[in-house]
């Protein structure tokens, strides 16, 4: 966070910056992206909140939430910490990963920097492994144009199998198309077909062995492929998160896929 009246002085000790979650949202939208891609600018432009945006990486340490209304529906937007990857295990990554998987957002916007797309796509591909309901927001296209970089947004969308929108969030360009794409994905009007990264033979075999068991346990709630990969990676945090989720589900008395099959 930058220095806003919310984030300095006493305000720092509030756990959630933009609380007010008492009103129900129709859809929850997560906002992910590399540091310094203008994520917070997109967040502000959509929610009208004046979260301070600063031009330095690692600014959003905490999770910020805001909401906006589109086509008469309330969207809750959750700004996740900027990360380059979801595979290394820092605190920020853990927060982002946890929310993307167990927060079950209805849609996830991955903000990527048009001036260095390749590096940003790493994160996008990792997010696609967790959740299929993704919209790619190719931000800073004005910077890219200045640097004479041309991007074929349509073919990017085809390659990734999810909608992609070009934006220049600082000037508000392309945001209308972004919210429309988000609404379509969140409400299920657009069904995405995200691309899947295939790994080497041994890994794929191992995944094949584990994935059915995961599906038995958690049903189709989460991406069983991603969970399988994380378990194979020995990610303890994911195991305990699954455990917590199972306990919660049970308390709520919901029938999980596991019970139906058992």
């Amino acid at each position: 966070m930058g220095l806003t009246y919310r984030s300095s002085g006493f305000g720092t000790n509030r756990t959630d910056f933009f609380r007010g979650s008492s009103t129900k949202a129709d859809f929850v939208v997560a906002l992910a992206g590399n540091p310094n891609t203008g994520k917070s600018t997109v967040f502000n432009a959509l929610t009208g909140l004046k979260q301070h945006t600063g031009n330095w990486p690692g600014k959003t340490v905490l999770r910020a939430e805001g909401r906006y209304i589109y086509r008469g529906m309330v969207f809750k937007l959750v700004d996740l910490p900027g990360t380059y990857s979801l595979l290394a295990g820092s605190v920020e990554e853990q927060v982002a990963k946890d929310f993307l998987c167990f927060g079950k957002p209805d849609a996830t916007v991955v903000v990527v920097d048009a001036t260095c797309l390749e590096r940003n796509l790493n994160l996008a591909l990792q997010v696609l492994e967790i959740t299929p309901r993704v919209v790619i927001c190719v931000n800073l296209v004005d910077e890219a144009r200045r640097k004479k970089i041309h991007l074929d947004i349509k073919s990017l969308a085809e390659e990734l199998g999810v909608p992609a929108v070009a934006t220049a969030a600082r000037d508000g360009h392309g945001l209308d198309r972004l919210v429309s794409a988000v609404a379509d994905v969140a409400s299920g009007r657009i069904r995405t077909s995200p691309c899947v990264v295939r790994y080497s033979g041994a890994i794929e075999e191992a995944v094949l062995k584990i994935e059915p068991r995961i599906r038995e346990l958690v049903g189709s709630e989460f991406s069983s492929r991603w969970l399988a990969l994380r378990l194979l990676d020995g990610d303890r945090a994911v195991i305990s998160a699954v455990n917590r989720w199972l306990a919660r589900e049970e308390k709520a008395g919901r029938v999980t896929g596991g019970e139906i099959l058992a």
Binding site: L87, L117, E118, N122, V197, Y199, A206, L232, D233
Partner: peptide, 30 residues
């Protein structure tokens, strides 16, 4: 199952993702 894949698992996964990102970027960016 893990022992079969555990060796440089993370590196392999990262490597594949990076390769994919590179190939997509090559098609999209000019």
């Amino acid at each position: 199952v893990r022992p079969i894949v555990a060796r440089d698992f993370n590196d392999q996964v990262v490597g594949h993702i990076y390769a994919r990102a590179e190939s997509i970027a090559r098609k999209v960016v000019s």
